[in-house]
């Protein structure tokens, strides 16, 4: 056997380290099933794996248009007794004087998302929505 280089070998590709829970159930593009007609919550979510953490990008609905809420880090959660699999995340947005907490969990192929929006000016009530998301596919 010969070697042609003294360069360090690249890190081996392989499965996710066992001490890191599997986040794959949450990853991808998700579309609100009602397209914003009822729920008033986000229209679309994109969940990406940054290697050490998850990020969430949300597209929100506003009258007559959509709006990119931007990308924020997400805190992930496992189910009790199942620390190897992530099934839930929370993410916080601060937009236009409101703080919105997204709380999501994955079940039977659906992402269920609760959005709690709390205005910081104290002049409007906080609002709550619960929406269901399915995976985005081209042509959807």
């Amino acid at each position: 056997m010969t070697t042609s280089s003294a360069a360090p070998a690249p890190p081996p590709a392989g499965p996710v380290p066992p001490d890191r829970p599997d986040v794959s159930a949450l990853l991808g593009d998700w579309l609100n099933t009602d397209r914003g007609a009822v729920s008033k919550g986000p229209l679309r979510l994109t969940v990406t794996d940054g290697g050490t953490s998850l990020s969430v990008r949300a597209i929100g609905s506003e009258p007559l248009r959509t709006r990119d809420w931007g990308e924020v880090p997400a805190a992930v959660h496992t189910a009790p007794g199942a620390p190897s699999v992530v099934w839930s995340f929370t993410a916080v947005y601060e937009l236009d004087g409101s703080r919105t907490v997204l709380s999501a969990y994955h079940k039977t192929g659906i992402l269920v998302v609760t959005a709690s929006r709390i205005p910081l000016d104290g002049e409007r009530p906080g609002e709550w929505t619960r929406s269901f998301f399915h995976r985005f596919r081209e042509g959807t």
Binding site: S39, K40, G41, A115, S116, R117, I118, P125, G126, E127, W128, T129
Partner: peptide
């Protein structure tokens, strides 16, 4: 806890 109403409703 902060109470929340249905979005868009009073």
């Amino acid at each position: 806890a902060t109470p929340l109403v249905d979005a868009g409703g009073d």
